[in-house]
Design a protein around this nucleic acid. Structure first.
Length: 502
RNA sequence: CGCGGGGUGGAGCAGCCUGGUAGCUCGUCAGGCUCAUAACCUGAAGGCCGUACGUUCAAAUCGUACCCCCGCAACCA
């Protein structure tokens, strides 16, 4: 069987933003997918990073009396540290101010310019002097902008419009390209209207903190030809062709807010470069806070660090991955978090581990019993375990992490039922080996579940596997070893007592 | 008539393409078990599947109309 390749990216986050649950979600999702693909034996590369140019950075730096670069250097660790704490296993971290990126951006601008797909044009629009930026007519009507006047400015434009038909055809021909399905339709709807060309520059007089346009030193390039290119500059485009060919094209995980940017701007840029389009662009939903959007003004921004400190990284990762249904918006509430933690992790998974190990300790001298010949009851559990693995693999390839978790929890629930039906605590009194057979089977199911949960909960899964004495065991049924001694251990996921929390 | 997505027991979702006893998780109630983190197991209550017509022996599932919610280009995942 040929090895698959998996290159996954998150957006590069804007360095001025305070990292919030949304950033954490996308990044954890990318991490979980990466870990799954690695576990499946795929050649995997996971990229995330920061977008460090632009007006807001320039202004914020000025306000603090710092050089923009110094400002960025100070802010960047907020993200890097958070990813470390969240157990993010990215293979690279790109910052758009790095030389390796800037050089590629300039080379690309030059190349596209030489091909005739970039031209200069005078642009007229509404400009807010107070805000120092162009505003839309709608914004002007809102009356929230002072000193609005019409000004003319020369800028460079990318001939995005010329790729419209080609892009429509591509999207039609590649059903898995934009996911989920309804987002694809949204984009096709968008493409029914004539595409305009894309303004890709800013005069330095207005914005100096950016990458200089190689064919006109009075300008810097504006966001698109800077930020989006990170996806290829990081993997060696223009500098390491072998590396680039190894990884490109990749899968872009994004929030639904930047779907147009990716599925239209970025893809037409790739057309202009003669490069293959991404393998997939997957847009997920937003986290709402109790039905309202998360916002600073409402004071309902959830800080990932607070959650980690309270409940541990793995619980947070599990919650975020299980609670957001593929592609839809999800609702974050502390009550929800506690409910899911208690029912899935504490009551089902953690508690099952406890009851099984407790019985082994009490009746079998703390030694994992022999598997023996399976009866139909064991066969049924084993079959569920065997069927689960390919099922999970298929779901992972469809980005359906929430369903993966549900499937694994179903196995755990089934084992709880199996325990109830077999009652090894009773069996032990009449037929000790038979009780052992039941406990072996239940423990093996737990082991397999832990292996499958490892990408989502690396620490907790490793703990379980270490307890079972098979830290490196894999996805085949029956890798649990009889005869090993089980150490004592504290509850894996202690229940969160609601009374105390409220 | 701009486009797209959605409206399924208290909550969140599946089912709809390939019509035929409405399923899952959580919550509620009752019972069981007592190995376990007051956990686990079983059972029950609770739905006119947004509304109205239509097709059909039969519609949550197909068709038509309507109502309601959400999203739809400039840097918020």
């Amino acid at each position: 069987m040929t090895k698959n390749k998996f290159y996954v990216t998150t957006p590069i986050y804007y360095v001025n933003d305070a990292p919030h649950i949304g950033h954490a979600y996308t990044t954890i999702l990318a991490d979980v997918l990466s870990r799954f693909h690695r576990a499946l034996g795929d050649d995997t590369f996971f990229l995330t990073g920061l977008d460090e140019h632009g007006q807001k950075v320039q202004q914020a730096a000025e306000k603090r009396g710092l050089q923009p670069q110094a400002h960025c250097d100070e802010l960047a660790p907020r993200f890097m540290d958070l990813w470390k704490k969240l157990g993010i296993s990215n293979d690279d971290f790109i910052r758009t101010t790095e030389a390796r990126h800037q050089g590629v951006v300039q080379a690309i601008l030059q190349k596209v310019y030489d091909s005739g797909a970039i031209y200069q044009k005078e642009y007229e629009g509404l400009y807010s002097v107070a805000e120092e930026r162009f505003i839309t007519e709608k914004e002007a009507e809102s009356g929230q902008f002072r000193e609005v006047k019409t000004i003319k400015e020369k800028n460079y434009f990318f001939k995005m419009s010329q790729y419209q038909e080609r892009l429509i055809k591509y999207i039609d021909d590649n059903p898995g390209f934009i996911r989920p399905e309804h987002r694809k339709n949204e984009m096709l709807g968008f493409l029914r209207q004539p595409l305009t060309d894309l303004c890709i520059s800013r005069p330095k007089s207005r914005l100096s903190w950016g990458i200089e346009i190689p064919f006109d030193r009075d300008y810097v390039t504006y966001v698109w030809f800077d930020a989006l290119i990170n996806y290829i500059s990081a993997i060696g485009y223009g500098s390491d062709e072998a590396k680039f060919r190894r990884w490109w094209p990749g899968v872009h995980l994004i929030g639904k807010d930047i779907l147009t940017t990716h599925s239209i701007y970025w893809t037409t840029m790739l057309f202009a470069l003669g490069l293959p389009l991404p393998e997939a662009i997957f847009a997920h939903g937003w986290w709402l806070m109790g039905d309202s959007k998360m916002s600073k003004s409402l004071g309902n921004v959830v800080r990932p660090l607070d959650l980690i400190e309270q409940h541990g990284v793995d619980a947070v990762r599990y919650y975020l991955m299980s609670e957001m249904i593929l592609g839809a918006d999800a609702n974050f509430t502390p009550e929800n978090f506690i409910k899911r933690y208690n029912s899935d992790l504490a009551n089902d998974f953690g508690n099952l581990l406890n009851r099984v190990s407790g019985l082994i300790g009490k009746n079998h001298g703390g030694i994992i019993p022999a598997a023996l010949e399976p009866t139909p009851a064991e066969e049924e559990v084993a079959r569920s375990g065997r069927v689960l693995v390919p099922r999970v693999e298929a779901l992972v390839r469809e980005y359906k992490v929430d369903e993966v978790l549900n499937e694994v929890m179903n196995l755990i629930r089934q084992v709880n039922k199996y325990m109830e039906a077999q009652a090894p605590w009773k069996l032990a009194k009449t037929d000790l080996p038979a009780a052992g057979r039941v406990l072996y089977t239940a423990t093996e199911a737990l082991r397999l579940a832990a292996v499958l949960l490892k990408p989502v909960m690396p620490e907790k899964a490793a703990t379980v596997l270490a307890i079972l004495g098979v830290p490196d065991s894999g996805l085949a049924w029956g890798e649990l070893k009889s005869g090993l001694a089980l150490p004592a251990f504290p509850p894996l996921f202690p229940r969160i007592e609601v009374e105390k929390k409220v």
